[in-house]
Amino acid sequence: MSTQSKRLPDLDTLMPFAGAVVMILGGSLFFPQILGLGYLGQQLQIASFLGVIAMGATVVILLGHIDLSVPWIVGGAAILSTSLAGTGDPVLTALAIPAALVFGAAIGLINGFGVAILRIPSMVWTLAVNSMLLGIAVLNTGGFNPKGEASATMIWMASGTIAGIPTAFALWMGLTALLALFLGRTGFGRYLSSIGYNEKATFLSGVSTPSVIFAAFAIAGLCSAFGGVLLAGYANQAYQSMGDPYLLPTIAAVVIGGTSILGGRGRLLGTVGGVLFITLLTSILSVMQISNAWRSIIFGVIIIVMLLVQTLRRKES
């Protein structure tokens, strides 16, 4: 089912929400504080960082591509925004967030160029871009944590509240609604799914597939950069490898949300459910003192299982 479909959410979309509810109820049997408003509010805030990044990943995966440059778009945006904000200059501080977003969009366009024009597989090209961004960051910082700090606006976006609701969560939901509306009301959303199903046929039908690919990767870059800004605001600083922990959970959230890794089918609503599921799973594993190594193994197993299920369902349909 495509993102722009007006039908009611299907089973793939609803399953991660059901899984999140089951985890909350099941976890509360061992850790009653899970049902507390404070804990749930904190989880919504933390989920927002992953959720913003996963929005862009959904758009790219709908194409049948994948963006592995997420870690250092996130890290680069965080470094750039805190470096500008940390100068104390009012003009540079005001430019901190816009500059980070422009950076993300620019890297997205570079990714789109490699995939749409040079026809290099997205996994290879974006991984190479991520590696180059890592090298540039190390050259810029000398391998040490970058200097700078978050602006008051960045801190408020990441850690503030609006009527008792985490600001980051409100921003995530607002951006998700806007992106879903854009995909549902424009031809762009239909083209994403069409390219995911069959890029050649879509091109032959008169659609400028390179333009769609460029736009999709630019959106993904913007989302990753905004995620970096939020993370920098939450930590009040940027640090090396800030985005590394978000690559695998981002892909897992999108796949768990019902978006086919092969492209052509998926919903942003499902991604929201996938993000909540992954966030709660990570939190509960942390409370149970499960090591990071085992968390990575669990995420990998979940992705593999979901891929197998999606492949079987696609063959049946």
Score class of each variant (00 low, 15 high):
2 S>N: 04
3 T>G: 13
4 Q>Y: 15
9 P>V: 13
11 L>I: 10
12 D>F: 14
15 M>D: 00
19 G>I: 10
22 V>C: 12
22 V>H: 11
25 L>F: 13
26 G>M: 09
27 G>C: 03
29 L>W: 07
29 L>H: 02
33 Q>V: 15
38 G>C: 02
40 L>N: 05
43 Q>F: 10
45 Q>R: 09
46 I>S: 04
48 S>E: 01
49 F>P: 03
49 F>Y: 12
51 G>K: 11
55 M>L: 14
56 G>P: 02
59 V>N: 10
69 S>A: 11
71 P>V: 00
75 G>M: 02
75 G>S: 14
77 A>E: 01
80 L>A: 10
84 L>Q: 07
85 A>W: 13
86 G>Y: 05
87 T>D: 00
88 G>F: 10
88 G>E: 02
91 V>I: 13
92 L>V: 04
98 P>Y: 14
101 L>C: 09
102 V>C: 12
103 F>N: 07
103 F>I: 08
103 F>A: 02
103 F>D: 06
104 G>K: 07
108 G>N: 01
109 L>G: 08
109 L>Y: 11
110 I>G: 07
110 I>E: 00
113 F>K: 01
114 G>M: 05
114 G>A: 11
122 S>D: 00
127 L>W: 00
131 S>E: 06
133 L>P: 02
135 G>W: 06
136 I>E: 00
137 A>K: 13
137 A>D: 05
137 A>M: 14
141 T>D: 04
142 G>D: 04
143 G>L: 07
144 F>D: 01
147 K>M: 10
151 S>A: 04
152 A>V: 08
155 I>P: 02
156 W>Q: 10
158 A>Q: 12
158 A>S: 14
158 A>Y: 12
160 G>Y: 08
163 A>M: 09
164 G>E: 12
164 G>Q: 10
165 I>E: 13
171 L>I: 15
172 W>Q: 10
176 T>Y: 08
178 L>K: 04
195 I>E: 11
195 I>R: 09
198 N>H: 05
200 K>C: 06
203 F>I: 00
203 F>M: 03
206 G>D: 12
208 S>V: 06
214 F>K: 04
215 A>E: 01
215 A>Y: 02
218 A>R: 03
221 G>I: 05
221 G>S: 09
225 A>V: 01
225 A>Q: 05
227 G>F: 00
229 V>E: 11
233 G>M: 02
234 Y>M: 03
236 N>C: 02
238 A>V: 07
243 G>A: 06
244 D>Y: 10
250 T>R: 05
252 A>F: 13
252 A>V: 15
253 A>I: 14
260 S>N: 15
263 G>Y: 09
266 G>D: 07
267 R>Y: 12
270 G>H: 09
276 L>G: 06
277 F>K: 05
278 I>F: 07
281 L>T: 01
282 T>D: 03
285 L>F: 13
286 S>T: 11
287 V>P: 03
287 V>S: 03
290 I>N: 09
291 S>E: 11
292 N>T: 14
293 A>G: 04
294 W>S: 01
294 W>C: 02
294 W>I: 12
295 R>T: 12
295 R>F: 15
297 I>N: 01
299 F>G: 13
299 F>N: 03
306 M>K: 06
306 M>L: 15
309 V>P: 07
